[in-house]
């Protein structure tokens, strides 16, 4: 084993934390979407690392599914962002509060 699994898990945790902080604190919708991608990637890294630990391919299949979900999410998310920008001329999440009471 050339890569220590624990270090890969720690890296995954750090990336997830960075992504989560970004998603919670940034106001730009596109950056929030990118942070969500980063969190998904962190989860992928953990899945691959555990897959390596147990020599089980199920983790790889999960990662494939996550990649598909990420691609679908980006397509729909960016579609929403574009139509939002057309209607409101802004990409600030704070200004998208029509349904907030």
């Amino acid at each position: 084993m050339i890569v220590p699994i624990e270090h890969a898990i720690a890296l995954s945790a750090v990336l997830f934390a960075i992504g989560a902080i970004g998603a919670l604190t940034r106001r730009n919708l596109i950056v929030i979407l990118m942070c969500i991608e980063l969190m998904l990637n962190a989860v992928n890294l953990a899945l691959v690392a555990f897959s390596r630990l147990h020599a089980d391919l199920a983790g790889h299949i999960f990662v494939l599914m996550v990649i598909v979900v990420a691609a679908a999410e980006v397509a729909v998310g960016l579609g929403i962002v574009i139509s939002l920008f057309r209607n409101r001329d802004s990409m600030d999440v704070e200004e998208v509060s029509l349904l907030k009471w």
């Binding site: 050339i2 890969a8 890294l45 691959v48 897959s51 390596r52 790889h60 990662v63 494939l64």
Partner: peptide, 11 residues
């Protein structure tokens, strides 16, 4: 690159 190092070549 890290995935390749973890033997996940396709991923």
């Amino acid at each position: 690159a890290i995935y390749v190092l973890l033997d996940a070549y396709l991923i």
